[in-house]
Design a protein around this nucleic acid. Structure first.
Lengths: 207, 207, 207, 207
DNA sequence: AATGAATGAGCGTTCATTCAT
DNA sequence: CATGAATGAACGCTCATTCAT
């Protein structure tokens, strides 16, 4: 076994784990947590039920794992996007572009995510997870708000409440992205459009 | 039986039906569809389980009924709001004010509604319902978009895509309303704020 | 509904409950707690599985109920036997006779009982029950010991430790009863034999 | 391979087998057959699960083996005790002393044994084992009875039914031993007490 | 020979739904 | 017409056993 490298066995294990997660993601995002049985996941993942329980303590843990993976992926990618070089305008543009990319590449996870933390509605998951997801979301909005605040100080943006600005940008981009993704033909995803609408004409101070 | 008038029996039936719906709404919005049993609903509504099945074919129909009622209430109230007298600006303001009022008065239904159709995610309900709800939503957005279009023609609003404008207003108002409702103390619902932010300073053409 | 009388429905319910208990007793005493499934009990009782859960919270409660019923039946009958009129000798004889009768009439329960509290061995039942059963047993032995003590004071019995005397009588009678019950032909149950052996010739003071 | 001598490999195998049996005994006697998994035994014995199956056909065989070992140990030791030199009185005293010693030294096995064959109750084990254990027990009682018979002929013991005498001695000694073992402080194991109570004062003919 | 990951039958339990009363 | 006891399919999960390595 070479150092810094996983053994073949370990690699295979990770692969299997990923296959289970993928099968579960597909089913959960299609039919919802309660309408998918462990048996069903096992069949799709081509494993026996018992094998699922070797990788995940129970159904809920499997569900949590999927959601947390997505949440962390988005959180880290979007946090990073907000720290890129350039002025605040560039950072927000970068945030938006990254978000679009993540949405399109992770549409299943996104749908699943919104079914849980979607609109402040809880249940489905027995406490805790939802709180954790909410926390990721809040931190991200705060970071975005901080960028807006700095931009407002620098007179790059109009002097609006930065928190509501962040909330607005986030909710509008969600709405547009879902709109585009539901009708990929009629509404091709167009980050430039978002940029144009939200920056050039609306939020930016007239130069 | 006289026309336009319900017999005592019919009135009682409607009353019972409404009581069941109310009990179910409270439970569903609190604990989620799958975590509420028909028995539980029956107990809260003070009926026998069998009685529930006299009024609703099955659990799902009961659920659908609640959601459709909410959808229709919102649809008709908001459609009407968009047809009020006054110019397009007044109509959109009216739409917004009515929406806030509806949200606050029907918070349980709203939470339930968003857990289903939240972000284009479709489950809990086996096909159909979601499509129907979506249709109500789309029609409303179209009506709002038509008002924006007229307003743009009249130079009341800036020349932006009216559909995206409608989508944006709707999603931002949702986000703000949920934000306010989650922290009623820190974020008191303030329709004037929405009006100020979205009309006076953003969407309206500078006069 | 007449006072002091159960309604037909209540009587039927008690009957059903008793049928389930009987079916469970037969199976548990034959195959042991862990080798009997709720489905099996349901089939033998000619009910659906769900019905069992209407009467008993879960499998363990059903098991407990059987054991506690037996324990209380034995406890009350044997306590009463020790309080009958007559001298201490008569009381102990009465105890013995009652015990033989109870054993023969409740052989299934007795077998089940001994498989749990049998020989100081615990498990099978998750704590609590075993302690409770043990307590019933201990109280009975104490009562028997008290009778022996009184008898010793009155010089009816030899001056031996009354607690050990009680323990001895109990264990010997158990052994004989099981021996007789296993070979009902070769060893017909004979309370007179126990009486003769244990009282006339062994424990009684020579007169 | 030399006769009468085990190769290193064979010795190692026996050692492993014994280690597995010991681990299983500890767990079974602590938690009961059904509450111990093969995995658990494997972990305690520090072997892989598969290895357990190299030594024992299945879980039940492993269980049987433990019980049969105990049964044979007790059978041979107690049989031998009954054949010691000296008169019948000495033999029975020896039986009793040996039994006490065996109980105390093998308390785990004893508890396990009594949970199975405790009071003629037969389960946990699917037929067969119980019969076999019963047979060992019966043979031992027969041997003890034979000693009593001889002693009665020699007028060492009172003229009671030797079989019931054997049964009585066995059951009383069991009861006392369990009583002592459950409260080792309040009831120290005292073979002299048994001897005094059952021989000097009760079963022995007055000399 | 030893391993332990994978298996899947079978468990206890729930709850939407029915139907005799 | 209202009732609620009865139903049984389906669930999540466990663990004795196997077999490729």
């Amino acid at each position: 076994m070479k150092k810094d490298k996983l053994s073949r066995k370990e690699r295979e294990q990770l692969q299997r784990r990923a296959e289970i997660l993928q099968a579960a993601l597909e089913l959960f995002s299609q039919k919802g947590y309660h309408n998918v049985s462990m048996h069903e996941i096992a069949v799709r993942a081509e494993f026996a039920v018992g094998t699922l329980y070797k990788f995940f303590k129970n159904k809920e843990e499997l569900y949590k794992e999927i959601l947390m993976q997505t949440a962390m992926l988005f959180y880290s990618a979007l946090s990073k996007a907000l720290e890129e070089k350039g002025d605040e305008y560039a950072r927000v543009k970068n945030f938006l572009k990254t978000k679009c990319k993540l949405f399109m590449e992770n549409i299943l996870s996104v749908r699943l995510y919104f079914s849980v933390s979607g609109a402040g509605v809880s249940f489905n998951v027995r406490r805790g997870l939802e709180t954790e997801l909410r926390s990721f979301y809040d931190q991200l909005i705060q970071k975005l708000a901080a960028v807006f605040e700095k931009g407002i100080q620098k007179k790059i943006f109009r002097p609006l409440d930065p928190y509501y600005l962040a909330l607005a940008l986030d909710s509008i981009s969600n709405a547009f992205l879902f709109c585009w993704m539901e009708n990929p033909d009629r509404h091709p995803v167009d980050t430039d459009l978002i940029e144009e609408i939200f920056f050039e004409r609306i939020y930016l101070v007239h130069r």
